[in-house]
Amino acid sequence: MTTTTGSADFKHPKCYANTEGGCSTRISGEHFVSHSLIRLYTFDDPNVTIQHDNGFGVRHPVSPRRFVANVLCEAHNNGLSDADAAALKFATFLREIALRYQNGSGDWGVNESVEISGDDFQRWVLKLLATHAAGNALTANGELVKSPILDDSIHLLLNRAAWPTTWGLCVAADATNPELKFDPFSRIETATDNWWGVTPMLKNGDQTLIGGVVELAGVGFGLSLYNPGRELPEFNLPANPLRGSIRRPSVMAWELKGVRKQVNFTWDDHHEHKNITYTMQRS
């Protein structure tokens, strides 16, 4: 397919990433969750259908090619392919291990690792949240909400700006926080049919998208598009879904009897990056 690009300052009215122009003249169907991930988890079954389970967004079963929102132009959609690739690489790695492990009745195997761009994966989490916001598929307290997207979020998504130190991706470091899941191997459904999810964080009043939690392959990733105040006591209150988390890990690892399955995230920023290891026990 040929992408027809408008002038450098052309802003397609249906493209949520049009803040500084650079749009193509044709709008595209942006999948609510990456098409490559749907194909992975359904074994590319041509007869599979998918829908949102919250009653909004895509409200009835459709083929994967129709699980889309017309919210990005072709140019900006194509420009986010590296983000989709990072998510696919992460999910493929964990899913293959989970299918072999079979909830503890199978084989944990030997040490394994994979290297993934943390920058691209962080953008994928933001893209999923932004697409749901632009596609009117977010809910709060069971009700559909229209959630504006900050221009700053678009600049981060399109790699036009550096992430502030206090913003960005985070993962669980506190086992008591149920919002940030960290065990992709003990529930086989995370490798089959319950493999993704999205929960937004919205600003009081105008419902602006300020972050959220995205699940992929049984792992929860928090994202803040503001300073959540980690240094404050309130950060660790039960109502905060990001409590007890660490930002932008360099390593996420799962260890069972000395054998590690490890995701190495690479980052181009100058922030601190910590390692996190989750110790597993065979049930």
Results as ranks from 00 to 15, higher is better:
residue 161 A to T: 06
residue 134 A to C: 13
residue 143 E to V: 09
residue 174 D to R: 07
residue 168 G to W: 01
residue 158 L to S: 11
residue 151 D to F: 06
residue 156 L to W: 02
residue 170 C to M: 15
residue 164 P to H: 07
residue 129 L to D: 01
residue 151 D to Y: 05
residue 144 L to Q: 13
residue 127 K to I: 11
residue 163 W to I: 10
residue 169 L to F: 11
residue 120 D to G: 00
residue 172 A to G: 09
residue 173 A to Y: 11
residue 124 W to N: 11
residue 156 L to S: 04
residue 123 R to T: 14
residue 130 A to W: 02
residue 165 T to N: 12
residue 174 D to T: 09
residue 118 G to Q: 02
residue 132 H to W: 09
residue 150 L to C: 13
residue 157 L to I: 15
residue 135 G to T: 14
residue 147 S to N: 06
residue 142 G to M: 07
residue 127 K to W: 08
residue 161 A to L: 11
residue 160 R to N: 15
residue 170 C to Y: 00
residue 165 T to W: 13
residue 125 V to C: 10
residue 167 W to Q: 05
residue 151 D to S: 11
residue 150 L to H: 13
residue 148 P to C: 15
residue 126 L to N: 00
residue 145 V to F: 03
residue 120 D to A: 10
residue 167 W to Y: 13
residue 133 A to Y: 04
residue 133 A to G: 07
residue 148 P to L: 15
residue 168 G to R: 03
residue 137 A to Q: 10
residue 154 I to K: 03
residue 131 T to R: 10
residue 143 E to I: 00
residue 123 R to M: 03
residue 127 K to R: 14
residue 138 L to E: 04
residue 172 A to S: 15
residue 125 V to W: 00
residue 135 G to E: 03
residue 149 I to H: 00
residue 127 K to M: 05
residue 141 N to W: 04
residue 149 I to K: 00
residue 165 T to Y: 14
residue 126 L to H: 03
residue 136 N to S: 10
residue 141 N to L: 00
residue 170 C to I: 03
residue 164 P to S: 12
residue 131 T to I: 15
residue 137 A to L: 04
residue 167 W to V: 06
residue 139 T to S: 12
residue 139 T to K: 04
residue 127 K to E: 04
residue 174 D to V: 10
residue 169 L to Q: 03
residue 161 A to R: 08
residue 142 G to V: 10
residue 163 W to Y: 15
residue 174 D to I: 14
residue 138 L to A: 02
residue 141 N to Y: 06
residue 140 A to Q: 13
residue 119 D to K: 03
residue 139 T to F: 01
residue 167 W to S: 05
residue 165 T to R: 15
residue 116 I to Y: 08
residue 151 D to Q: 11
residue 134 A to P: 08
residue 173 A to Q: 15
residue 132 H to V: 08
residue 122 Q to G: 13
residue 121 F to S: 03
residue 138 L to K: 09
residue 129 L to K: 01
residue 150 L to V: 02
residue 151 D to E: 08
residue 135 G to N: 06
residue 156 L to G: 02
residue 137 A to N: 05
residue 155 H to S: 09
residue 131 T to L: 13
residue 164 P to E: 02
residue 146 K to R: 14
residue 126 L to C: 10
residue 156 L to Q: 06
residue 172 A to N: 15
residue 126 L to F: 10
residue 147 S to Q: 12
residue 160 R to Q: 13
residue 118 G to H: 08
residue 133 A to N: 07
residue 173 A to P: 04
residue 130 A to T: 05
residue 121 F to C: 05
residue 165 T to G: 05
residue 133 A to D: 00
residue 167 W to T: 07
residue 136 N to T: 12
residue 130 A to H: 03
residue 137 A to K: 03
residue 139 T to I: 06
residue 124 W to L: 12
residue 125 V to T: 08
residue 148 P to D: 11
residue 128 L to R: 02
residue 132 H to Q: 12
residue 171 V to R: 05
residue 155 H to Y: 14
residue 162 A to Q: 11
residue 135 G to F: 01
residue 173 A to F: 01
